[in-house]
């Protein structure tokens, strides 16, 4: 659905985006993750034909964003970082105008506006002037604006920024519910958002793609080892020695101080699950066991790892 090939964009000498390539299949939700000023917005603006790329090609729904921009524009819905709202219009008039310029058939226009308002639950404010709406409602009007012509591709630039926690959850649910019918790209710098809403994630830093994978794949790939937390009531040195002797265990370290019981992090090689062996050992030793827990390497760790590595290379 979206095919980006080695797109670069320079502002003067500075490369905002450099040799970015990725593909998005129909119906996918893809998260665009990166720290501030990583080039997320620039990439999105290129996809939406707002900015031309300095080099490379990008295609949306089979149309080149530069050569056939009008065709592309008909098929995308775009929510920029600041929702593009005419403050002095009423919600319904505004959406009607957007539907008009997006080329919605005049006979279907009323229905399209109604549907878009229904999807984001803003029917109750349809007669209000946009200026007087709260931030959350404005954001929803922005999303409705991107949806009103039922586009194939939705491009959302930080859709949950500035919302309160409840609204964030609502918007995420909304985005999830839209998947399938629409292909969605959303950008964010908050990690939970990606792990909660997206199937795939593209991490971008300093204008370059540093990783692209499914969310699970990414965490697995970048976790070098499995880590377990073990809490038992037994002398530390004894426990450490016995566990270290188990097959596959790479490292045992004490976690935290002052705990009532002995708490250890046990790292093992990725291929081997040592939990059954560990349990057997503990039972055999007759140690009172309080906890065995597998630690997930979080997306946050991966993100930090990738973006800070990059920085190290650059300097």
């Amino acid at each position: 659905m979206i095919d980006v090939q080695q797109v670069s964009r320079y502002f003067g000498d500075i490369a905002a985006v450099k040799d970015v390539s990725f593909q998005v299949e129909k119906g996918e939700i893809v998260g665009f993750l990166g720290p501030n000023a990583a080039g997320k917005t620039t990439t999105m603006r290129i996809l939406t034909t707002y900015l031309p790329a300095s080099s490379g090609t990008a295609k949306v729904a089979g149309f080149d964003v530069h050569e056939e921009s009008m065709q592309v524009r008909k098929r995308i819905g775009y929510l920029p970082e600041n929702p593009p709202l005419y403050q002095d219009m009423r919600v319904c008039d505004y959406l009607d105008f957007v539907a008009k310029i997006k080329g919605v058939d005049p006979n279907d226009r009323k229905k399209a506006v109604q549907e878009a308002m229904g999807k984001v639950a803003i029917d109750n404010v349809s007669k209000r002037v946009i200026r007087h709406l709260s931030k959350g409602y404005k954001q929803r009007v922005g999303i409705a604006q991107a949806l009103v012509h039922n586009p194939d591709v939705l491009i959302l630039d930080e859709p949950t920024i500035g919302l309160d926690p409840n609204q964030i959850i609502e918007v995420r649910e909304l985005i999830k519910s839209l998947a399938g019918n629409h292909t969605i790209i959303l950008s964010t710098h908050t990690l939970p958002e990606v792990s909660m809403t997206c199937e795939r994630v593209i991490i971008i830093n300093k204008g370059k793609v540093v990783a692209k994978d499914t969310t699970e794949g990414l965490t697995q790939k970048h976790s070098g080892a499995r880590r377990l937390t073990v809490v038992v009531d037994a002398p530390l040195e004894d426990v450490r020695k016995k566990i270290s002797a188990l097959e596959g265990v790479e490292k045992v370290e004490k976690a935290g101080n002052g705990a009532e019981y002995t708490t250890l992090f046990v790292d093992s090689s990725k291929s081997l699950d040592i939990r059954p062996q560990l349990a057997k050992l503990i039972v055999a030793q007759n140690w009172p066991l309080y906890e065995i827990k597998a630690e997930d390497v979080s997306l946050e760790d991966v993100f930090l790892q990738l973006t800070t590595n990059e920085e190290g290379e650059a300097s």
Binding site: T48, R73, Y78, P84, V98, I101, Q145
Partner: peptide, 14 residues
């Protein structure tokens, strides 16, 4: 200033 230019420039309007 308000960013609505992005709507206009990404709509099928010449």
């Amino acid at each position: 200033r308000t960013g609505t230019i992005e709507l206009l420039m990404t709509s099928p309007v010449s």
